[in-house]
Structure formats: structure tokens, C-alpha cells
């Protein structure tokens, strides 16, 4: 109840922020600007629209998660709104979880909006509609599947941003989280390097890095989605990948709760 109250207030607060709408607007603009690919052949154009669109969702989703989340708790402390909340019968962890859930709602809304926008653009392509509206809609709905998976991975990013913002400041939190995001996005390449590397020490280091760093790359199922085929075991993959994201977020949020419980506000 208390948590839900705080989550709702957080959602409302975020949706009042101009920066979120600007980021969302730019992302939608990029998704909508697909007509610039008109000089490509229809099949290539579709691949480009999907990949550009999914890429824009990935980057701007992360941008929204970072910028909106990192400022949340420091602003409360700075503007002292946190005093009136925490002097009520609210536990510190309830406050953190409430903030986190609020952000989750914000991210969900953003991703769904971007995903649907991309779906609309794709359905707007003549070559897609040619195979029949319902069939095309069903096959391209996997855009939303990829977007939904990304949602769980952006939760990790937000959990990082919250933790870092409790321990440091908004700006440092953004930089640290961005760093984690970039390293985590390279997970596929790190994994490939393990096989290429000859040095066992390097291999161990890379493997440890791969297992410790949050692997945002897990959210990248774009290739099959773009080319419209379903790899074997995809359902299980999605379950595992989501479980991974949730567990990772759980760790970070636990630490955030403990850190915030000991923080003087």
C-alpha cells in the first residue's frame, strides 16, 4: 500500500519531467523517420527500419532509464521532500522499492509506446501489408517481444542508477551506470573473446567479467526478430533471460535498500 503510493507518485513525477518526453520524442522521431530509407529495396528497407527502430529503442530506453532514475532520490533529498515522507510510518526500504517500481512503470510505458510506434511504422510498409494484415501483425508483434525483454534489462540499469545515486550524486551515478551499461552491452563480444584468447589468465579474467557484469547483451535478440524467424528454444531463452534480469535487479535493489537505510537525509 505504502509502496504502491510511492510508486504512483514517482510515476507521476517522472511523467512531469520534460527531459523524459524529449528523449521519448526523439526516439519516436527516429522510428518515424524511416522513409529516409526509401532508396533501399523493400526487403532491405524493412530490415533497416526494424534494426534502426530496435536500436533506437535500446539506446533511448537506456537513456531514459539513466537520466530519469539517477536524479530521483538525490532530488528528494536536496529538496527535502524526503523528510515529510520518511517522517511518516514508511520504512526506508519501502521508499526505495516504491521508487524502483515507479521507475519500472515509467520504463514500461516508454518502451510500450516506442514498440507500438515501431510496429505501426512497420505495418505502414506496403511490402508488409501484402502478406495480409493479420498475418503481418502477428509476425511483427515480435518487435514487442524484444521490447519487453529490453524492459527487464533496463530494470537492471535503473537499479544500478538508484544504487549509485544513493551512494554518490546524480551525475556520478549517470556516468557509472552508463559505464556499466556499455560494458554489459558488449557481453556477446566478451564471450567471443574468451574463445579467441590463448592466455588462460585472460580467459579466466574475461569469463569472470562476463559472469559478474550485468549482460545487457542478453536483451539483444534483434537478429532473429529483424529477419522474422524463431530460433529453437527461444521461449526458454526468454524465461532464463528474464529470470537473470530480475535476479540481478533484486541484488542491486537489496543493496540499495540497505545503503539507503543507513543514509542520513
Amino acid at each position: 500500500m505504502v509502496i504502491w503510493n510511492i510508486a504512483r507518485a514517482t510515476f507521476k513525477e517522472c511523467t512531469q519531467k520534460k527531459v523524459m518526453w524529449i528523449l521519448l520524442g526523439v526516439a519516436l522521431l527516429i522510428i518515424g523517420l524511416s522513409f529516409i530509407f526509401s532508396f533501399f529495396a523493400p526487403s532491405e528497407r524493412l530490415v533497416l527500419i526494424k534494426s534502426m527502430g530496435l536500436g533506437a529503442i535500446y539506446l533511448f530506453g537506456a537513456g531514459i532509464a539513466l537520466i530519469v532514475t539517477a536524479g530521483l532520490i538525490p532530488t528528494e533529498i536536496e529538496r527535502r521532500t524526503v523528510h515529510t515522507v520518511l517522517s511518516k510510518p514508511v520504512e526506508r526500504w519501502q521508499f526505495v522499492i516504491g521508487k524502483f517500481l515507479g521507475i519500472a512503470l515509467v520504463l514500461f510505458m516508454n518502451l510500450i509506446l516506442m514498440g507500438i510506434a515501431l510496429l505501426i511504422v512497420i505495418m505502414g510498409q506496403g511490402s508488409v501489408r501484402a502478406e495480409g494484415f493479420v498475418k503481418a501483425l502477428v509476425s511483427n508483434a515480435r518487435i514487442l517481444e524484444a521490447t519487453l525483454l529490453l524492459f527487464f534489462y533496463l530494470l537492471i540499469l535503473s537499479a544500478f542508477a538508484i544504487l549509485f545515486s544513493i551512494l554518490t550524486t546524480t551525475n556520478i551515478s549517470i556516468m557509472l551506470s552508463l559505464f556499466v551499461f556499455v560494458v554489459g552491452s558488449l557481453s556477446d563480444y566478451v564471450e567471443s573473446l574468451i574463445n579467441v584468447s590463448q592466455n588462460p589468465l585472460t580467459q579466466i579474467f574475461l569469463k569472470a567479467l562476463h559472469l559478474l557484469v550485468p549482460n545487457f547483451g542478453n536483451a539483444n535478440i534483434y537478429n532473429p526478430v529483424i529477419h522474422g524467424y524463431i530460433p529453437p528454444g527461444e521461449f526458454l531463452y526468454l524465461l532464463l533471460a528474464i529470470a537473470y534480469a530480475l535476479s540481478y535487479s533484486l541484488i542491486l535493489t537489496s543493496i540499495s535498500c540497505w545503503a539507503f537505510a543507513g543514509k542520513e537525509v
Binding site: A9, K12, T84, K88, P89
Partner: peptide, 30 residues
């Protein structure tokens, strides 16, 4: 804290809320 209430100096509230929303919000916390 259920039986205590506090009004800080120069109170800042969530300024994106309306007057009644703030009260509903804090009421919910109680």
C-alpha cells in the same frame, strides 16, 4: 511515526501534485 507528525521548516512538497493529491498521498502513507 504513525502517531507523530512533522512539518519541516520551509516545507517543500511534490510540486507536480495538486493540493488534494498531496494530502491523499501522505494520507496513504499513514
Amino acid at each position: 511515526r504513525q502517531k507523530v507528525s512533522y512539518m519541516p521548516e520551509n516545507p517543500y512538497f511534490y510540486d507536480y501534485m495538486t493540493g488534494e493529491e498531496v494530502l491523499y498521498f501522505y494520507g496513504g502513507l499513514f
